[in-house]
């Protein structure tokens, strides 16, 4: 059964038709054309599909598209300000915090959610907050450094 869902994605009103059992991740990727969020596992384990739903970090693979009615969805595509990269994106590049890049959109969204709640996280807090995001390439250290550097820059104003 397909149904119409009206939602807001990265600040824009978006309507889409979706199957009632389709996930928000599939909707974003296959119907809305936003392919930033990735499917690594589809079971909530890898975090590659992380998006922010009404201010809360979630796995889009474990949300139904139908649930997005009237909600606000933030994806990695909304992170930069036009051509201007978000500080997290710049620091990820500077610190070489990505290799293949599959995990990166999820890490960026998780890091964004973390810094909103905790502008000055310790290394341990960063590692805990990002424990739901898996990376097969970087070994995590560079990601943690990039998040620390972003936090410092954002605090500095």
């Amino acid at each position: 059964m397909t149904q119409l869902v009206n939602t807001n994605i990265n600040g824009d009103a978006v309507g889409f038709n979706c199957e009632t059992d389709e996930t928000l991740l599939d909707v974003l990727r296959n119907r809305v054309g936003l392919t930033g969020a990735k499917e690594g596992c589809g079971t909530g384990d890898c975090g590659a599909c992380s998006v922010i739903l009404d201010g809360t970090l979630v796995c889009a693979c474990l949300v139904l598209g139908m649930e997005a009615e009237g909600r606000k969805v933030e994806t990695v595509e909304g992170l930069s300000d036009g051509a201007e990269l978000h500080p997290l994106q710049s620091k990820f590049i500077e610190h070489a915090a990505l290799q293949c890049g599959i995990c990166t959109p999820g890490f960026l969204m998780a890091a964004k959610a973390l810094l909103k709640n905790n502008p000055d996280p310790t290394e341990e807090e960063i590692r805990y907050a990002l424990a739901g995001n898996l990376c097969r390439c970087t070994g995590y250290d560079k990601i943690v450094r990039a998040v620390q550097a972003t936090a410092a820059e954002l605090r500095g104003g």
Partner: peptide, 9 residues
């Protein structure tokens, strides 16, 4: 239970 993503749900 789970990660921050899971905690949000």
């Amino acid at each position: 239970i789970g990660s921050d993503q899971i905690q949000g749900r």
